[in-house]
Design a binder for these strands. Sequence first.
DNA 1: GATAGTTTCATACAGTTGTTTGAATTGCAA
DNA 2: TTGCAATTCAAACAACTGTATGAAACTATC
Lengths: 222, 222
Amino acid sequence: MSTDQTRLAILAAAERLYADRGFGEVTLRDIVAAAEVNLAAVNYHFGSKEDLIAELYVSRSVALNRERLTELKAAEDAGGGRAAVEAVIAALVGPPLRGCLGPDRQRSAAARFMVRASAESVPVIRRIRTREIGHLRRFAAALRRALPGLPEADIYWALHFALAMTHETINGAERLQRLSGGACDLDDVAGIVARIATTVVQALAADTTAAAPPRRAARPRA
Amino acid sequence: MSTDQTRLAILAAAERLYADRGFGEVTLRDIVAAAEVNLAAVNYHFGSKEDLIAELYVSRSVALNRERLTELKAAEDAGGGRAAVEAVIAALVGPPLRGCLGPDRQRSAAARFMVRASAESVPVIRRIRTREIGHLRRFAAALRRALPGLPEADIYWALHFALAMTHETINGAERLQRLSGGACDLDDVAGIVARIATTVVQALAADTTAAAPPRRAARPRA
DNA sequence: GATAGTTTCATACAGTTGTTTGAATTGCAA
DNA sequence: TTGCAATTCAAACAACTGTATGAAACTATC
């Protein structure tokens, strides 16, 4: 078996297991069993368990950020360099939501892995996670262009809340479904993205109503 | 040392350590060291590590829910049996936020423990957590009274988002502070509660006004 | 102050964890 | 083929995990 095959098999198995069970409930032996490779392969190819997690997180983080920025760029280009607030938020929350939810159950392990990494406290990941800040500043700038004059704090609260709703929706999807007795449709991903975007827009609009009248956006519903 | 003293010392130490480091990074030996009791005391008094966590979670969960319901009841009584949406949300998110944030750094370990328990995937807690649903139904009913005619799904999405913003604000307080360069004041707890409540209210308001003109909001696509 | 019932303690236990080792196997260039 | 490096493998390693044991220390009752 070629080197890359083993490496990729380990990465894929680790990603899936961590996404499914969480970091605390997965051992190296679980991973190598799922990847069908020898136990020593992990240390041979990655050095240590921590290094494996780090490489996994970095690579998936890069991919997610690229996806988000591509969508943001498209929205800005379509709007002549300035994207609407809804579009900025949708670019931020769309990729993870589409990757984790949806009816076709083709839910990507990568997206679920990233959300787990956001929620659980793993020292290695916590150490790396600082980079995310730089990435979010790009979205802060987009919001600043969309709503000139908005206080800086409101911009960051908006991004923060958007991510909050996204993560909790993914992690707590089952609870929400049970709580609502099925009234909340977790398969309508586009609707969820729109709902989160609208919520953020409304909050920001309410903030600026000090001078201007509130603008109301319709929310698409099934 | 009396029995209760040892029990309470263990519970307090476990709560603080789990709140500080997360469930995956704390061993029984860490706990008994912090509590200054013998290793065997945990199994003697609680039966097992799982039982300790379960008892800890249940007791703190009961206390948190009581605090929330007291606040909700007070708001309903003040409003003649019907509380405003802001008050309902404030009763839901106020207790954990006040317990976890604030300038006096008198942040309670109990509140942080509960938020950790919400975020991380611990089998024991996951098993118990079903009760929370019954508790949330009480708040759903309060929202229903506050906004008659609101679709059921919207009620549950509102509660879900309120909890989402609360948890992420507590868990990601440090990141938000760094991201915003200090622009977001994490010490102004009352302001945060109000911000979350306002966000939910605005989102719900947008929903009812949009009921008349059913148009689709623009969804950004590449 | 002897007795019986709790509670503490040092210690050991069996199982699991991540990691290492050195020999076997493979892949590939000369 | 031969030779050599890269990779795989079974096995063992030390460290750590939660748990159990039995003797010691304590507490309260008679």
